[in-house]
Design a protein around this nucleic acid. Structure first.
Lengths: 226, 226
DNA sequence: GTCTATAGATTGATAGAC
DNA sequence: GTCTATCAATCTATAGAC
């Protein structure tokens, strides 16, 4: 990406590490993924990680950075479009369109770029991941956009006390994170019988569009509850 | 608990290990908690874990077993009370009372017994924990009660297609798990500035009663959405 | 039942040849 | 930039004295 002189030997080593790390972090979790697993899957040398990124934690940060910057850009544009439309038409923003502006890019991101689906799982995991390392890096990235979401929702639901709004947003994030994570592991899970909590052998179609719609319907109703 | 002859030297070693493991698993996560940390906190010897429980995984199972059996008993009784009342009065069960029968014991358990609060955090974590070990043991315990919850909700919401109901229950569990986990880490988080996503310095009162009420209001509205 | 000591495996990270 | 070899730390689990 940088020097002009280089006819670099393996121009995609960094990318391959990022892709493998993204997939494994999303699938196995940060703490359960060893550098050896990553370099093995990326088919690069073990030492390459520390050469290119410096440490495992810095690699995680790079994984987030690569996807979250453009994703947050989309979310920001959509949230600001919602606010501008509401100002232009002299009405408060709708709760559902506001939530959609935040959530749809997250779930749709899965189809947007090769490998982005794995990252979408990682986001779903990061929202709920109890681990401090993952949580800290992730929160740092979403904090500004979360603030914008919160402010827009305050306009959409002016009668809701801010404290209640805060918790309802948390409920929504929990639902979203858990949903993405279940989608991520769902395919394996059904084969492995890990999905035994799915009663009566119901097989759920979980295409992005219908999932997003169901989730938005659910949390919009919850958000607008009296 | 077993032999009658023993004047056991440290009758509470097992309990102390269980308590320490419960607290650390809930607070740090299963994979991030070493046996050394547990035995250090419990002030017992490292080898005592394997002597009393056999392995780290068996210890986790024992931690779940100790609390989940009585907790599920309460949930079962409350869910069956809801069903009986509905049959007796010739009406379908209410969505909110059904959800409350499942969720209230989980969040109220915190105040019920000494140390149970820690376990409540562990449950919140287990619902959403991506780790397979935790998830598998936990799912095995809640599967029957989950089935009962699902069946009762089907009666409460007969017009909702089962597939949609399934996902809405998942949304609710995600919201609940995330909520418990945030409550668990919230106190530390506010001090450490980890709660930076909390906009404008809003301090949320998170006593069990108001949290449960807010959560139930949210997910009941979501569950009853058209 | 409790303890010390240690085996045996895995981890993140690094030094140095090429 | 890539590789081998290895360090130092950590982990779960166990053997055996007391």
């Amino acid at each position: 990406m940088s020097t002009q002189s280089a006819v670099a030997t393996q121009p995609d080593t960094k990318q391959r590490i990022l892709d493998a790390a993204e997939r494994l972090f999303a699938h196995e979790g940060y703490n359960n993924t060893s550098l050896r697993a990553i370099t093995g899957e990326a088919d690069v040398n073990l030492a390459a990680v520390n050469y290119h990124f410096g440490s495992k934690e810095a690699l995680l940060e790079a994984v987030f950075q690569r996807r979250l910057v453009p994703l947050n850009q989309v979310r920001r544009e959509r949230l600001e479009a919602v606010r501008e439309a509401s100002q232009r038409e002299g009405r408060p923003p709708g709760a559902r369109e506001t939530l959609a502006a935040f959530i749809e890019p997250t779930l749709a991101f899965r189809e947007s770029a090769a490998g982005a689906g794995e990252f979408s799982n990682l986001v779903g995991r990061a929202i709920i991941d109890p681990d401090d390392t993952v949580r800290k890096i992730f929160l740092h990235h979403i904090e500004p956009i979360f603030q914008l979401l919160f402010d827009t929702l305050r306009e959409a639901l002016p009668d809701l006390p801010p404290e209640k709004l805060f918790w309802r947003v948390q409920f929504s994030l929990g639902a979203m994170g858990h949903t993405i994570h279940m989608r991520a592991t769902g395919d394996d899970a059904q084969k492995n019988g890990k999905f035994k909590c799915l009663p009566h052998g119901i097989i759920s179609s979980c295409d992005a569009a219908s999932m997003t719609d169901m989730l938005l319907t659910f949390i919009t109703a919850g958000m607008e509850a009296p």
